[in-house]
């Protein structure tokens, strides 16, 4: 089956005053329809930049390389206009900040109706009615009344539901959810993630879920990509990342004793700092922080190596058991 999204060797560089710096370096993964792939990693490792690159929403100072395919279509080869028409229709994105992601000047219903009018050519009225149905689908009670309300009249969780309704209104093949629950309180977080799962089952949309919360990965994702300093350091099936983490960074993230049944683990903080992307040292980028590092690590840059079906890590010592 053609993956909903196939990312191969994605690179993103920014031209800045200090020079060119590579925020994403050779990221590869793919998601099948109806599946969730989680991307985990510390702040600044390039998660949002990667998602924006897939959507084609990066600012002008960004250069994107590699190969991006949405249901087989080459995103980087098409015209910006053709790509724009896919946004909101075949691929959609929701953001970390539900409080500010909706336009304060328009009511919720109209903001959803706008997408439907644009991509499905519905009339104003038909689009609005469809928007109410979309709100209903994201389990917003009293959808007709809510549709007429403005963002400031809605709670954070409600706004994120509106964003989801908007993103899924045109039944996209791909939904990128960039930390969709970080700004919400815990019970609402669980509801939103549950909702995404249900909608995924109903619509067959593939989801790329960016998160800080490893507990989320365990419950909601079929696959995980662990990113460190712009690269994937480990990719694995959702469960395997807990049962046999192979990369020292993943192990660090999981803390001392990862337990699937235990309390939900936020990313444990790891000592040390990320290397300056402008002056990347030779060898493994994690070496300065790695408790397992050996002399070889500062010389040879480990490539992502397949260890088991669907499980790869970029560490000279992997698989760890063998070391």
């Amino acid at each position: 089956m053609t993956p909903a999204l196939a990312v191969t060797g994605l690179t993103v560089s920014f031209a800045t005053d200090r020079g060119v710096f590579r925020a994403v370096d050779g990221l590869s993964f793919s998601v099948a329809p109806g599946e969730t792939l989680a991307i985990v990693g510390e702040s600044g490792c390039g998660k949002s930049v990667s998602s924006l690159a897939i959507m084609g929403l990066l600012e002008g100072n960004a250069r994107v390389g590699g190969d991006l395919r949405l249901a087989g279509q080459d995103l980087l080869a098409m015209t910006p206009e053709a790509r724009r028409k896919l946004r909101g229709a075949d691929m959609a994105m929701i953001f970390q900040e539900p409080m500010t992601s909706l336009n304060p000047a328009f009511c919720a219903g109209n903001q959803i109706a706008e997408v439907l009018a644009l991509h499905r050519g519905l009339s104003r009225h038909a689009a609005y009615e469809e928007a109410i149905r979309a709100l209903d689908q994201v389990r917003i009670p009293d959808a007709r009344r809510r549709a007429a309300q403005y963002p400031h009249q809605l709670s954070g969780g409600m706004r994120q539901r509106v964003m989801i309704a908007m993103a899924l209104a045109c039944r996209p093949k791909l939904l990128i959810a960039d930390e969709p629950t970080t700004a919400l309180d815990v019970t609402v977080q669980a509801q939103i993630l549950e909702l995404l799962d249900e909608l995924k089952r109903e619509t067959g949309t593939a989801i790329v879920l960016i998160t800080h919360d490893l507990g989320v990965v365990a419950d909601h994702a079929e696959q995980v990509v662990v990113m460190y300093a712009g690269r994937a350091v480990e990719t694995a099936p959702g469960e395997a990342i807990f049962t046999h983490p192979e990369h020292p960074y993943t192990i660090g993230l999981l803390g001392a004793a990862p337990r699937l049944d235990g309390p939900r683990g936020r990313l444990a903080s790891i000592e040390g700092t990320v290397p300056d992307p402008m002056h990347r040292p030779p060898g493994c980028g994690f070496a300065p922080r790695c408790p397992f590092a050996v002399a070889e690590c500062t010389v040879t840059d480990p490539a992502l190596t397949m260890l088991a079906p669907g499980h790869a890590a970029a560490c000279l010592l992997a698989p760890l058991e063998a070391a």
């Binding site: 028409k85 336009n103 644009l118």
Partner: peptide
């Protein structure tokens, strides 16, 4: 503002 990014994400 973020809502401008949202509008672009909608394909406007």
């Amino acid at each position: 503002q973020d809502y401008v990014r949202t509008a672009r994400a909608k394909g406007m």
